[in-house]
Simulated scan of single mutants.
Amino acid sequence: MTSSRSLTLGVLNGMGSGALWGTVFIVPLLLHDFTSLQMTAGRYIVYGLISLALLLPRWNILKNILGKAEWIALIRLSILGNVLYYILLSTAITTVGGPVTTLIIGFLPIAVLVMGIRAGSSIRVKQIAAPMSLSIIGILLIVSRSFTAHATATPTHSVAFSTQIIGLFCAVGALASWTLYAVENTRWLLKTSTVSDHDWSLLTGVVTGALALVLVIPAFVFHAAPHAWLDWARFWGVCSATALLASVVANGLWNRASRLLPLTLSGQMIIFETLFALLYSFVWAHRWPSIVEFCAIICLITGVLWCTAAHRTPHNTSE
C-alpha cells in the first residue's frame, strides 16, 4: 500500500522535475543561432561530464553493485529517454511542425498510464477515467491554441506527403521511446534498490554523455557555422545550465518520484512539464494566458489532483 506521505512526496518530486524540464523549451529561444543537433550534443556532453564528476567519490562502491545487466539497462534507458527521443522529436518538429508533434507527444501521460495498468497496477480504469478525460481535454485545448497560433504566425506551405509520413512516424516513435523509458526506468529503480535515485540518474548521465560523443562530428563539424567567441560562451553557458538543472537535478527528482509513486500516477507527473513550459512561455512573451490556455491549465491541474486522490482511496490498494 502506498502511504499518503509517499504520494505527497512523489507528487512534489514530479512537480519539481516538470518545472526544471520545462526550461528546455526556452533553450531554442536563447540559442536560436545554433542547430538543434548542436544543442542536444552540448547538453548531453555536459550532462555526462557533471555526472562523472559527481559519481567519482562513490565509484568504488557503485562498481561492486552494478553488473552487466545494469549497464545494459543504463545504455537502453539513455538511448530511449535521451538520445533517440530527442532525435525523433526534433525530426518530427522540423517535418510536420510543432502543433502536430505536440498533439502526439502530449499523450505521453496516457501512454504511460496504459502501460502501468497492463503491468498489473491495482488501480481500476474506472477510478481514473474521469481525471484522465480532463487531462485529454486539457491537452487538446493546448494543441488547438498551438494550431491557431501556428496558422496565423506562419505562411501556408506545402510539405511532401512522404516527408509528412516520416515526420508522423518520428513523432509516434518519440512517444513510444519515452513511454518505454518511463516504464523500464521505474522497473529498474525498484529492482536496484541499493542504488540511490540520484546515483541512478548520474549513471544514466555518464552513459548518455558517452553516447552523445557520437553526435560531435555531425553537430560541430558538418554544421560548423561561424560564431564569435561570445556566442560560443553563451552556447556552453546555456548548455551547462540546462544539463545541470534539466538533466542532473530534474532526472534525480523524476527517479525519486518514480520510486515513490505507482506507474499509473507517476506518468501523470509528465503533465507538469507542459504546464511549466506554458508558464515560462507566458513570461518570455510578457503576456497572460488566453481563455483557452487558462481552461487547459485548469483541466490539467484538476486531472492530476483527481488522479492523485484516486490513488489515495483505500480500495485501490487492497485488491
Rank of each mutant, 00 (worst) to 15 (best):
T102P: 11
T101G: 10
T152M: 08
I137S: 03
R76K: 09
A92H: 08
I139A: 14
V183H: 09
I137F: 13
Q164E: 13
L62C: 02
R118E: 05
M115K: 03
I72Q: 11
F161H: 09
G120T: 09
I166L: 15
A92Q: 09
I104F: 13
Y85W: 12
V143W: 08
I123C: 06
I104M: 10
T94H: 14
L189N: 15
F161K: 08
I117M: 08
G173Q: 02
M132R: 00
E184G: 04
R124T: 00
V125R: 03
F147H: 02
G98T: 10
L88F: 12
A149W: 01
I87D: 04
T101C: 10
E70T: 08
G167K: 02
S177H: 10
L62H: 05
L141S: 06
F147K: 01
T94V: 11
V114N: 00
W188V: 05
A153W: 07
K63H: 10
R76A: 06
V96F: 11
R145Y: 12
M132K: 01
I139Q: 11
I165P: 15
T186L: 07
T163V: 15
S90F: 14
A176I: 12
S78K: 00
H150I: 04
L88W: 12
I166H: 10
G120R: 15
I128E: 05
G167F: 06
G116F: 07
Q127N: 11
T95K: 10
I105R: 03
L180S: 09
S90Q: 11
L103N: 13
V83I: 13
L77M: 06
K68F: 15
W178S: 01
L140N: 13
T186G: 10
I105D: 09
P109F: 09
I110M: 08
G81R: 00
L168E: 12
A151D: 14
I93R: 01
N185D: 05
F107D: 07
T94M: 10
L141M: 13
I75G: 08
A69R: 06
G167L: 09
T102N: 12
R187Y: 12
T186I: 04
T179I: 03
F107Q: 03
G173V: 00
A151W: 08
S90G: 10
A69S: 13
V159R: 00
T101D: 14
S90H: 10
A119K: 12
N64Y: 05
W178C: 01
S121G: 06
A111Y: 06
I117D: 03
T163F: 09
M132C: 03
G173P: 15
A92C: 14
L88A: 04
R76F: 04
I79R: 00
C170W: 01
Y85F: 14
A174T: 05
L140R: 06
T101R: 04
A160N: 14
P155K: 14
I72Y: 01
L190E: 14
S133Y: 03
L77W: 07
A160D: 15
P155E: 15
H150C: 05
H157T: 12
W188S: 04
I137M: 02
V114C: 03
I142L: 15
V183F: 13
I136E: 09
S144I: 06
I137Q: 02
S122R: 11
R145N: 09
I75V: 14
S135R: 01
I139E: 12
L80S: 01
T163Q: 14
S135K: 04
G67M: 03
L77S: 02
S90Y: 10
S144L: 02
L80N: 01
I137E: 01
V100A: 07
L113W: 08
N185V: 00
I110N: 04
